[in-house]
Design a binder for these strands. Structure first.
Lengths: 189, 189
DNA sequence: ATCGCTTTTTGCCAAATGGCAAATGGTTTC
DNA sequence: GAAACCATTTGCCATTTGGCAAAAAGCGAT
């Protein structure tokens, strides 16, 4: 819980009472490896904070290929924004890649906090903006690079992830095939 | 000016007085084709709203290739956020692709408005979140598609841009060479 | 240690894309 | 209209990456 509070306080100030109110609305959720936090076709009704583990957001493109859109590491919020905000069905899966421990807020509590705590909305928007900015900065540059460079960029950005997750997820994140990635790896070391 | 106000009001409510205050801080800026709104190595000190024209954000990667990161069309805010927020040198260029007409706020006025108008910060964050979300949704899918599909997606997203800008910019946005794009185009019609 | 299952690596060949330079087409200027 | 300039297309070939299937390696359960 301390991790979550620290995280929040990096984006704005809250007094002790407000922190306690926020804390009181949380519950712990564990998700075993390969299970989903939210699924395509369903409405996402929770906001989570990853305490332990790695998750990914993925979807299927027109050709039926499974695409990993991004990875989410410890100490980050995880929420399918579009689905959560608008109460519409999601088009993506949020999946635990390793066993995960989350702190979650129900949609109801989350909205209540937004109305109750002055300044909480600004903090939330700061968090969201930062996360979105990061996603743009991380994935977008891949478009213009060749396969090897993409992998090297991945290593820079997610140094702690490589050895904890299947190769195929990395390949689908980088937009290359698993075999190509395997060959690239061989040539690097 | 009406376009700007309409745009803002889509993200939150303001009274007439607030609108007038905001309006009073603006000036009109015209940028001829190929000139820059902000440049790499310099600090961006203005927020702009594109009334007319198309702009692009671009940078040079490690190999010295010019990469178009995204296009910005009429009726959108344009600002180099990282540079503007933190007063650090930018790493990208914001360039007018056609002759452009902007409404701009100086950094000073912009910050003043943030302090003066209650709720303005929330509106700004909503705008930013939406813009960032859009960038993610637009560029990130390109990673996992082949050249032809990328071009088709570009056509969907920017149907009004294709015929107004050089082919090379589109190619660099899609992460393919100009010649490849030319060949792809030929095969489509 | 062995079996069964999944993940990763490899080989082989085909297809897509890049690199480079020349040709073509279009536009502006005089 | 011709010349100069720029953007786009094309040809040719090299390189990269994909597709597919088989082999190898890793891992857990017994």
């Amino acid at each position: 819980m301390k991790a979550l509070i620290d995280y929040i306080l990096r984006f704005g100030n809250l007094n002790q009472q407000q922190i306690e109110l926020i804390s009181s609305k949380t519950r712990v959720l564990t998700i075993p490896k390969d299970e989903y936090f939210s699924e395509a076709g369903k409405i996402s009704r929770e906001v989570g904070f990853i305490v332990e583990g790695i998750m990914r957001v993925c979807y299927y493109n027109n050709k039926g290929e499974e695409i990993t859109k991004y990875f989410i590491e410890e100490n980050n919020l995880v929420v399918d924004l579009e689905s959560f905000d608008n109460e519409i069905c999601s088009s993506a899966y949020v999946q635990a890649i390793t066993d995960c421990k989350l702190i979650v807020f129900s949609r109801k509590d989350w909205l209540e906090l937004l109305h109750t705590i002055v300044g909480w909305d600004t903090i939330v928007y700061k968090i969201i903006s930062r996360a979105l900015g990061q996603k743009v900065e991380r994935r977008s540059p891949l478009v213009s690079e060749d396969a090897k460079t993409r992998y090297l960029k991945f290593l820079e950005i997610y140094p702690n992830v490589v050895n904890r997750i299947p190769l195929s997820y990395i390949a689908s994140y980088l937009g290359i095939t698993q075999s190509s990635l395997s060959r690239i790896r061989k040539n690097i070391r």
